[in-house]
Deep mutational scan, measured.
Amino acid sequence: VTLFVALYDYEARTEDDLSFHKGEKFQILNSSEGDWWEARSLTTGETGYIPSNYAAPV
C-alpha cells in the first residue's frame, strides 16, 4: 500500500476531485494520470482525484 500525506489544504474544484486538509493521509489508487492521482482518504474513506504536488510519501 502506497501511503501519502497532504502537504496543504485543497478544496475540490470538480465533483471528481477530493477535498482534503493538510496532514490527511491517502492511499494512492492510480498515479498513472500524470499530475492528478486517484486517491482514497484514510480519514473520510472518500475517493477522488488529488493534485500530486500537494502530497508526499509517508
Score class of each variant (00 low, 15 high):
Glu15His: 12
Val58Lys: 04
Gln27Cys: 13
Asp9Cys: 10
Leu18His: 02
Ala12Met: 03
Leu18Ile: 10
Phe26Asn: 00
Thr43Met: 10
Tyr8Asn: 06
Ile28Tyr: 02
Trp36Leu: 08
Glu24Ile: 04
Ile50Pro: 01
Glu24Phe: 04
Ala56Asn: 06
Asn53Val: 09
Glu24Trp: 07
Glu24Thr: 08
Ala39Arg: 00
Ala6Ile: 03
Gly48Met: 03
Tyr54Ser: 15
Trp37Gly: 00
Tyr49Thr: 07
Asp16Met: 15
Glu11Asn: 10
Asp16Ser: 15
Asn30Arg: 09
Val58His: 07
Pro51Ala: 03
Asp16Thr: 14
Tyr10Leu: 03
Tyr49His: 08
Glu38Thr: 12
Asp9Phe: 05
Ala12Asp: 01
Ala39Trp: 02
Ala6Gly: 04
Asn53Pro: 06
Tyr54Ile: 06
Gln27Val: 15
Ile28Cys: 05
Gly48His: 02
Pro51Lys: 06
Ser52Pro: 07
Ala6Asn: 00
Val58Pro: 05
Val1Lys: 12
Gly23Gln: 02
Glu33His: 14
Ser19Trp: 03
Glu15Ser: 13
Ile28Trp: 02
Val58Arg: 03
Glu24Leu: 03
Thr43Gly: 06
Ile28Lys: 03
Tyr10Ile: 02
Asn30Ala: 09
Ala6Ser: 04
Ala55Asn: 02
Asp17Asn: 10
Trp36Val: 07
Ala12Gly: 12
Ile28Ala: 02
His21Met: 12
Trp37Phe: 08
Leu42Ser: 04
Leu3Ala: 06
Lys22Gly: 03
Ile28Arg: 04
Asp17Met: 14
Gln27Tyr: 14
Phe26Arg: 00
Asn53Arg: 12
Leu29Gly: 03
Arg40His: 06
Ala12His: 05
Phe26Leu: 11
Trp37Ile: 08
Phe20Asn: 01
Tyr49Glu: 01
Leu18Phe: 09
Phe20Cys: 03
Ala56Cys: 09
Ser32Glu: 10
Thr44Ile: 01
Lys25Tyr: 15
Ala6Glu: 00
Ile28Val: 09
Leu42Arg: 02
Leu29Arg: 05
Glu24Asn: 05
Gln27Ile: 15
Ser52Val: 09
Ser52Ile: 11
Gly45Met: 07
Gly34Asp: 12
Leu7Ala: 03
Thr47Gln: 10
Thr43Ser: 12
Tyr54Gly: 07
Val5Arg: 04
Gly23Cys: 07
Trp36Phe: 10
Ser52Phe: 10
Phe4Cys: 08
Thr43Glu: 14
Val5Phe: 10
Phe26Glu: 00
His21Asp: 06
Ser32Met: 13
Tyr8Pro: 00
Tyr49Lys: 14
Ser41Glu: 02
Ala55Asp: 02
Ala55His: 04
Glu33Met: 14
Asn30Ser: 11
Ala12Tyr: 02
Pro51Asn: 09
Leu7Phe: 03
Arg40Lys: 12
Ser41Gln: 05
Ala39Ile: 05
Phe4Trp: 15
Leu7Gly: 02
Tyr10Gln: 01
Asp16Lys: 15
Glu38Ala: 08
Tyr54Pro: 01
Phe20Ala: 01
Thr14Ala: 11
Asn30Asp: 12
Glu11Ala: 10
Phe26His: 00
Tyr54Leu: 10
Tyr8His: 08
Asp35Met: 11
Gly34Arg: 12
Glu46Ile: 11
Asn53Ile: 09
Pro57Asn: 05
Tyr49Ala: 05
Lys22Asn: 03
Ser19Gln: 04
Leu29Phe: 08
Ala56Lys: 09
Asn53Cys: 14
Glu24Cys: 06
Leu3Ser: 07
Lys25Leu: 15
Asp9Val: 05
Ala55Ile: 15
Glu33Pro: 12
Ser32Thr: 13
Tyr49Trp: 15
Tyr54Thr: 04
Leu7Ile: 09
Leu42Ile: 10
Leu3Thr: 09
Ala6Asp: 00
Ser32Pro: 11
Thr14Glu: 08
Thr43Ile: 09
Glu15Gln: 12
Phe4Ser: 03
Thr47Pro: 01
Ala39Glu: 00
Val5Thr: 06
Gly34Thr: 11
Thr43Leu: 13
Asn30His: 08
Glu33Val: 11
Tyr54Phe: 11
Ala39Gln: 00
Trp36Tyr: 12
Leu18Val: 04
Phe20Ser: 01
Val58Asn: 06
Phe20His: 00
Ser32Phe: 10
Asp35Thr: 10
Glu15Gly: 14
His21Asn: 10
Thr2Cys: 14
Pro57Leu: 08
Ile28Asp: 00
Gly34Ile: 10
Leu3Arg: 05
Glu11Gly: 05
Ala55Val: 15
Tyr10Arg: 04
Ser41Arg: 13
Glu33Ala: 13
Trp36Asn: 05
Tyr8Thr: 06
Ala12Leu: 02
Gly34Cys: 11
Glu38Phe: 15
Ala39Phe: 03
Ala6Tyr: 01
Leu42Cys: 14
Glu46Tyr: 10
Asp17Lys: 15
Pro57Arg: 06
Thr14Met: 10
Asp35Gly: 12
Val5Glu: 09
Val5Met: 08
Thr43Phe: 09
Lys22Met: 08
Ser19Ile: 02
Arg13Cys: 13
Lys22Val: 10
Phe4His: 06
Arg40Asp: 00
Ile50Val: 06
